[in-house]
């Protein structure tokens, strides 16, 4: 099996995505890999991207501190697109991720529907492994 050098985590600031980040930190600690938190910038969010990025950086700093994971091995990657497309590109340069981790539902997603579900779409289309962290791991 190919070693996990980089784990990409879908990160929109939701509780489910924070649970995914915590899981990724635990996994990365065990397999000695880097973690890249990937945030997709949509059409509407672009107008306030600086504010959003600042908020995300603060959340990443807090999550990293709480987990005790090495700050130097965590990056925030902000990219244009919808979450599914951006995460599907994570296997390519510059991230070259070996694994994608997502929460079971992102912001505004509906339970049980393939329609609009990043995790289900990724599971269907990704050519690298995808881990979906269940909602009960979120801290609410």
């Amino acid at each position: 099996m190919k070693p996990l050098r980089t784990i990409a985590v879908g990160f929109d600031g939701s509780d489910d995505s924070k649970a995914a980040v915590r899981w990724a930190f635990e996994m990365a600690s065990q397999v000695d890999s880097d973690v890249v938190l990937v945030h997709a910038v949509g059409l509407l969010e672009r107008a306030r991207i600086e504010e959003v990025t600042a908020e995300l950086r603060e959340t990443v700093r807090r999550l990293t501190g709480e987990s005790g994971f090495d700050h130097a091995r965590v990056r925030l990657h902000v990219a244009n697109g919808d979450p599914c497309s951006v995460l599907l590109r994570a296997k390519d340069a510059p991230l070259e991720a070996d694994l994608i981790v997502v929460g079971s539902r992102g912001q505004g997603e509906h339970a049980g529907l393939l329609l609009g579900s990043t995790s289900l779409q990724l599971a269907e289309h990704s050519s690298i492994p995808v881990v979906v962290v269940p909602s009960q791991h979120a801290d609410g």
């Binding site: 929109d12 949509g42 059409l43 509407l44 969010e45 919808d82 979450p83 912001q107 505004g108 997603e109 509906h110 529907l113 329609l115 609009g116």
Partner: peptide
């Protein structure tokens, strides 16, 4: 999805 009233399909 529409028949049931619709909603947000993603953030956009």
């Amino acid at each position: 999805f529409c028949y049931e009233g619709g909603g947000d399909l993603d953030e956009d």
